[in-house]
């Protein structure tokens, strides 16, 4: 049966191609991890090292002790936690109002949200900086956090999920005499929990990655987040690749861990949102 043999061969070739692709795609991540454990001798020796000759943990110690990465990590965690928390607090409420209420200005709000999704962030960088500056928020945590307190796409996501919540549940709460706030917190919020987890993941990744704004709004070392800290490190020590890679692993690890922990939900969330910040 040549046809069947041909098909089997085809399938094996396809599997091999997918495997080869996976290897090529993984090279930069693996190389980053490998190089983060190399001593500077491994780099500057004439022969090429794909793997470190010995696991050189000193890079990680240096990054935290001699350089300020512990502080960057703290800032990143703090800013991201605040941004995720505020998004979880506010965007479902806004999504709820857009999904289940009629009020004056609803169309205007929708236009605001749509515009925010479509406006390129770079184009409003200067006025946004001027606003934050007039609040006295340059180089303060509020300045790092507030512009991302609500994700326009998060609002859309929430609206979409809450539209699927049956009105009867909400009305039943009203008939029982529950207040609107109680209806929201005890009926609506529990029903959209999966969406809230998706929202948290998406906002976490976006906030953890934010570079340009953090670059502009931080002055000096104290409030730098990991991306800015890394960038400034590179500007100063352009040849210390082993430390650069160790710092990169530190910056990458939290997102990768979250991704590995909740892969399917992560991918589902991203499929719905990706491309839109």
């Amino acid at each position: 049966m040549p046809r069947k043999a041909f098909r089997t061969l085809n399938r094996i070739l396809a599997q091999l191609a997918i495997l080869a692709g996976a290897i090529v795609i993984s090279v930069p991540s693996l190389y980053m991890l490998s190089a983060s454990f190399m001593s500077s001798q491994d780099f500057f020796s004439t022969e090429f090292h794909l793997l470190p000759t010995a696991l050189y943990w000193q890079n990680y110690i240096d990054v935290f002790v001699s350089f300020n990465f512990g502080n960057y990590l703290k800032n990143s965690l703090l800013v991201t936690a605040a941004v995720v928390g505020m998004n979880l607090l506010f965007t479902p409420m806004v999504g709820y109002s857009l999904a289940k209420f009629d009020f004056p200005g609803k169309t205007l709000l929708l236009i605001f949200v749509l515009a925010t999704i479509m406006i390129p962030f770079t184009a409003i960088l200067i006025p946004l900086f001027l606003i934050i500056r007039s609040f006295g928020w340059v180089n303060t945590y509020p300045g790092l956090i507030m512009p991302f307190a609500m994700s326009a796409f998060g609002v859309f996501l929430m609206r979409q999920f809450i539209l699927a919540v049956p009105d009867d549940y909400i009305d039943a709460g009203r008939i029982d005499g529950a207040s609107e706030l109680r209806i929201y917190f005890q009926i609506v919020v529990p029903l959209i929990q999966p969406a809230l987890i998706t929202l948290a993941i998406v906002v976490f990744v976006a906030s953890w990655d934010e570079f340009l704004w953090m670059l502009i709004v931080t002055i000096g070392d104290a409030l730098r987040t990991l991306p800015v800290g890394l960038a400034k490190f590179v500007e100063q020590y352009r040849t210390r690749y082993e430390l650069m890679m160790a710092g990169s692993v530190v910056a990458a690890a939290p997102v990768v861990l979250v991704f590995l922990a909740v892969q399917r939900r992560f991918l589902q969330g991203m499929a719905g949102l990706s491309g839109l910040k």
Partner: peptide, 22 residues
């Protein structure tokens, strides 16, 4: 009333940080 109440933070936020800068 409650629609407006839930939407107010968003009006302020998107208006101030994204629409007004435009």
């Amino acid at each position: 009333r409650f629609g407006l109440f839930f939407a107010t933070p968003a009006f302020l936020f998107f208006g101030l940080f994204y629409v007004y800068p435009l």
